[in-house]
């Protein structure tokens, strides 16, 4: 009787695995933004008469790697990433300017987050365990989405990775109008620079419910 049960279990397990239920052949790794790290999201507007920055540390999200650790083969449909920035937390150093940014340009009550959702398309390993990672996906701000490719430098830190990215954003691409009175003070092209740390998600809150 015991032999018959064991045989049945073997058949059942084989059947389930053949349908893709069960552990993949390569262990996946979920990494999540470490909110205790020194995370910085900075945008910079430069015109001939004015330059200012907006800064926040309110970035959150995750990345799912298809293999562990990060390697030259990392990428493809088995990877997934999603990051979002709390736009109402952006601080330009002047409260009046923050209010204009929140109310007039970003309209944060309607569109509270900027986000990037996509997958890793290419990983180029560099020295000391770091990598140059390219991700493709949907960048959304002000309720308008654009397909974007974003390149980041990744370096190991502790159990996770320190990630540094930079890319330009055209306000006009996202239907953010600049009032005529402000065209000398606010550039249509905004440089966005992001630095954050991701670490293994474990069972911390924020992981998939």
């Amino acid at each position: 009787m015991t032999m018959r049960i064991q045989a049945a279990l073997r058949v059942l397990a084989a059947t389930l695995l053949s349908f893709g239920v069960g552990p993949p052949s390569v262990a996946a790794q979920e990494l999540q933004v470490d909110r205790d790290a020194q995370n910085v999201v900075r945008f910079t507007s430069r015109t001939q008469v004015d330059e200012f920055e907006g800064v926040t540390d309110k970035i959150d999200g995750y990345v799912l790697l298809d293999g562990e650790p990060l390697s030259a083969t990392t990428g493809g449909d088995d990877t997934e990433l999603y990051f979002e920035v709390d736009l109402a937390s952006l601080d330009t150093g002047i409260g009046l300017r923050d209010r204009h940014m929140r109310d007039d340009y970003l309209e944060v009550k309607r569109y509270p987050y900027a986000s990037f959702k996509g997958k890793i398309t290419h990983t180029e390993v560099s020295g000391s365990g770091g990598a140059h990672v390219t991700a493709a996906g949907t960048f959304t701000v002000h309720g308008v989405s654009m397909e974007r490719e974003i390149a980041c430098d990744v370096t190991p830190t502790g159990p996770g990775y320190r990630t540094t990215c930079g890319f330009p954003v055209l306000l006009s691409d996202h239907r953010i109008d600049i009032p005529k009175v402000m065209f000398l003070k606010l550039s249509n092209e905004i440089q966005v620079d992001v630095q954050f740390t991701v670490s293994p998600a474990g069972n911390r809150p924020g992981r998939k419910p």
Binding site: L16, V21, G22, P23, P24, A27, A28, E30, R35, K58, D60, G61, Y62, L64, D78, E80, Y82, E84, D86, L87, A88, S89, R102, V108, K109, P112, Y113, P205, G206, R207, K208, P209
Partner: peptide, 23 residues
Amino acid sequence: VPLAASAQEPPVRWQRRSGPTEV
């Protein structure tokens, strides 16, 4: 089996750890 699978599946939706900053 579902317990084992859920620990390894890619997340399909994001659960925010805090709400947006109050204006």
